[in-house]
Design a protein around this nucleic acid. Sequence first.
RNA 1: UGCGGGGUGGAGCAGUGGUAGCUCGUUGGGCUCAUAACCCAAAGGUCGGAGGUUCGAAUCCUUCCUCCGCUACCA
Length: 677
Amino acid sequence: MKNFKRYLVTSALPYANGPIHIGHLAGVYIPSDIYTRYLRMKGVDVISVCGSDEHGVPITLKARKEGVSPQEIVDRYHTINKKAFEDFGIAFDIFSRTSNKVHYETASDFFRTLYNKGEFIEKSSEQYFDEEACCFLADRYIMGTCPLCGNENAYGDQCEKCGTSLSPNELIDPHSTISGSKPVLRETLHWYLPLDKYEPWLKKWILEDHKEWKVNVYGQCKSWLDHGLQPRAVSRDLDWGVPVPVEGAKGKVLYVWFDAPIGYISATKELTPDWEKYWKDKETKMVHFIGKDNIVFHCIIFPAMLNAEGTFILPENVPANEFLNLENDKISTSRNWAVWLHEYLEDFPGKQDVLRYSLCANAPETKDNDFTWKDFQARNNNELVAILGNFVNRALVLTNNYYDGKVPARGKTDSNDDAVLKEIARIRENVESSLEAFRFREALKEAMNLARLGNKYLADAEPWKVIKTDPERVKTIMNIALQITANLTIVCEPFLPFSMEKLRGWINFNELKWSEAGKTDLLITGHVINKPGLLFEKIEDEDITKQIDKLLATKKANEAEGAKTAPGKDVITFDDFTKIDIRTATILEAEKVPKTTRLLKLKIDTGLDIRTIVSGIAEYYEPEAIIGKQISVLANLEPRKIKGIESKGMILMAEDKDGKLVMVTPADKVSNGSMIK
RNA sequence: UGCGGGGUGGAGCAGUGGUAGCUCGUUGGGCUCAUAACCCAAAGGUCGGAGGUUCGAAUCCUUCCUCCGCUACCA
């Protein structure tokens, strides 16, 4: 393995439209913090950079909704998150932000360099524009009625009800989610990064030179590369962000994914005038800690940008984690389904390490994992308290009782003693190799094994019995137990920094060097220790119940929100109504549209004609069961092609609160083509 | 839809061809220095389903089911 002179650790920039939650922590910030603390203890040159990602449309929307400026929104969350990280012991060397001056300059420079080198393609295209809000609309911000299933809340890119992907011009009655007005097409100019140009280079760099990356990361990259890369726009029409620094680019800003990773560079710049050695020296090892949603940006797009610029180094590894669920449900900022860090810190003061521990022990390293409060409690009570806290307490209490707090001399050791002493060194190596491979769960387990070893050693050696028959022997036993304790303060430090600081205070030991770990003479004979307190305390059921109740309340509130009857629509004239041709029809044939889950192809008799309609109802109706059924049809709806089939009209369905679709059938049989009015 | 990653005893995970393992929980026993903590032992799994390759499959192949993510101006 190559030896690096220094390390640059980056952690995904949290988006400043909400507070930090446990998903962020387990996926990104705890692993990066453990890694950084470990490297610092090794005495290597390492810096850890992070900051708020403060641009992009969602922030402008949130600002508009609250009637404040985007700056106010990002100021709010930047402040909350910066403080929460600090209080939680995530030890960034700098937590910067992308709305500051250094970043504007850095990002502009970066863009200009690529621009001057001719790395961009300039292209104009037609996009939807919201005339009321005066901005262009991403597909996601256009809503309308799905031509397929009639869902009125279909997005411009996809209908989430029937799962079909759409383009905005397919929507019936499209409107902007920002102002509600009808969007119009308008010509706009943008700059594109031709990713396809870097494809051969990326293929070699990732697929050949970085086979050691985690399978989820490597797999995702391979998939993208195998499909072929396309040029990607790097600018947007928006008034919030870093302005595109070229002539004639008024009203255009750098698109956030271009802007945000440069934030790592500007944060480093802000931290040290020496920033270039971290970014441009081949002997620096750069590691990006991110969540799985960010893989392509950090493995393909950002490296392509760096490569195009030409003077920067590339990441050596991108240890992306999967996602953490909360009590069996996806964590969601908008649904308030999360454990927020700033709230946890208030609810569980002084218990940073408990959350650090349970999130690391259950980190979603290879697949999505679930966080439950019961598990959190069990990890604390059965592991931190019972194994680690208890061992430390036993060792220190016995030493205080027998030797008045002075470390006794180690005499002749027996074979069991020797085995234990040897094991201490082995555990250090295990922790180390796991950390180097970004296997943090495993590393933590190994560190805890040292406390397990201590408990077993005491149980086997039984000093409380031996003291009555062979007091000399007990000195050796306790000496060894104390060496284990001292070792714990080192190997557990990256994971449990608050508790280990306490413990170091109790044993008057401050050698925080990784190189000391594994040694069996860390505490010399006669060294004085203090009276210990409790390293961890039990968490009672009521504390857990309180948290679970909080989540249940959220769930209830969300359900109430979802169960609301859709609001009434604007008044229309009778004329408007007469334009609509709704009539009864009978289903003659029904079959599933191949390779879809929700679509049925129906042949119906409308009285006027026999026609084909594609409808997104396959989840609720079996094809065989509905043949012969009488239904209501919107007959004069403009025809549309769906999955290559021309669909003429729409089957009317009543949508229940839970999204279930039910056919609207006449109470008595009527002839086909009867008008519904 | 396509692609990527998952589906292993009650829970969380490891294990990529050769007798199915770890942590927690459960049950029984031991110990009493310790926050009823600790130590020992046991029970508990046809490794998502089906088919195949092999002397032998959790591990390789085919297929299906299922969860999560991405699918390119949703950060």
